[in-house]
Amino acid sequence: MSNIPDLFRPEDFKLSEPPPPVLYKYMVADRVADVLDGGMVRFTHLLDTNDSFEVRKTFRRFAGPKFIELMKGAALAAITPAYIDQHIQQKLDEAGLNIPVAHVREMLKEQSGMSIEEFMRSQMGGFINMFASGLDSIKSPEEFLTEMGSILLCFSLSERYDIPAMWAHYGGNHTGLVVAFDTNHPWFKDDKSPAESKLQKIKYLDGQNDELFDDLQAAFSSKATDWAYEREWRVNCAMKQIEKTVDLGADTINLRSFPPGAVTTVIVGAKASDETVNRVRYVLKRKYPHAKLQRTTPQRMTGTFVLEDI
Rank of each mutant, 00 (worst) to 15 (best):
M1P: 12
M1R: 14
S2N: 14
N3Q: 10
N3L: 02
I4L: 15
D6R: 04
F8N: 14
F8C: 07
R9E: 14
R9C: 09
D12M: 01
K14A: 10
E17F: 08
P18V: 01
P20M: 07
V22Y: 12
R31H: 15
G39K: 02
M40H: 13
V41D: 03
R42F: 00
T49P: 01
T49A: 08
N50Y: 05
F53S: 12
R56F: 01
A63F: 08
G64N: 05
G64R: 03
K66P: 00
E69C: 00
L70W: 09
A75D: 00
A77W: 04
Y83Q: 07
Q86C: 13
I88R: 08
Q89Y: 10
Q90H: 12
D93W: 01
D93L: 11
D93N: 13
E94D: 13
A95P: 02
V101I: 13
L108P: 01
K109A: 09
S112M: 13
I116N: 05
E118K: 11
R121N: 15
G125R: 12
G126E: 08
N129L: 13
F131T: 09
L135V: 15
K139P: 00
S140D: 09
I151D: 02
C154R: 07
F155E: 04
L157R: 01
E159Y: 06
R160M: 00
P164W: 11
M166R: 05
H169N: 14
D182M: 06
N184T: 14
D191P: 00
A195H: 09
S197W: 03
Q200V: 07
Y204E: 05
Q208H: 11
E211K: 02
E211R: 06
D215P: 07
D215E: 11
L216K: 03
A218G: 10
S222T: 04
K223F: 00
A224L: 11
Y229E: 06
E230T: 02
R234L: 08
N236L: 15
A238I: 10
K240M: 08
K244W: 09
T245E: 14
P259N: 09
P260M: 02
P260E: 00
A262K: 07
A262P: 07
A262C: 13
A262M: 08
T265K: 14
T265Q: 13
V268Y: 08
K271N: 15
N278K: 15
V280E: 01
R281G: 00
R281C: 04
Y282C: 03
P289T: 07
R295M: 08
T297A: 00
Q299K: 12
M301Q: 10
G303A: 10
